[in-house]
Amino acid sequence: MPSSLTPAQLTWRGVRDGLKLAPPLVLSTSLYGIIFGVLAAQAGLALAESGIMSATIFAGAAQLLIIETWARPVPVVAVVLGLLVVNARHMLMAIAMRPHLVGLPLWKQLLAASVIVDDNWALMMGRFEEGYRDAGFILGLALFAVPAWTAMTLVGHVLGGGVADPRRWGLDFVIVAMFIVLLCGRWRGLPTLLPWGVAAAVAVGASYWLPGKWYIVVGTLAGSFAGLLRADPEGPLKAALRAKS
């Protein structure tokens, strides 16, 4: 819980603290950005579309889902729904961070929340829980990560035109690998098989019977509701923190 003795802060000093820990995040974000750019080019996005998306959304998993759904004309409702489903966790993360920001002007609270992604949020929360009070830290972590994500998306997009068949290089499997490692962090023992098994079975079945990417929505809903039949593994903060540990 936040200390009541020290008020919440958002200062350049905090930004500098974040910058010191940023290099590994910027590196992994850059590599991931290249992969996203390649896949976006494969999915038929224009260079400007990929770049604007990375600069304004800054969320890898959601962007991968969006380019999977991308078509001409663009299905606006479907891509926005996809983002809302994948990024719903950002809302939970902001809820968990809010008690540590209370006392700051609203715009500073929103600024800190606006750069939330899995890794910088986990680092920020770790600091807050040690009694550190400066939300500038998360901005320092993001300061170079957002431009790097955008720039490397453009690099990957340009390279992507040269990778004729993504299957030939196994690039189609990179997304699967990413989801596997994220899922490992979310594993909570055998009961986890209930929501995930239902999601997998329904998604695979729906992929035969439903057009387009509807199997993702159907599988997600079926799996999420099936998950309610197991005991709630833990609260949102603890769950998200453990997922990143």
Partner: peptide, 29 residues
Amino acid sequence: IPSTGKAGQLLREMPGAVMVSLAAPSVIN
């Protein structure tokens, strides 16, 4: 926003379910 109870749990089940729903068909098929 309820972050506890069934509504909160449903929100927490979603990310895992969406990742499984994305990956499972391309693996199984």
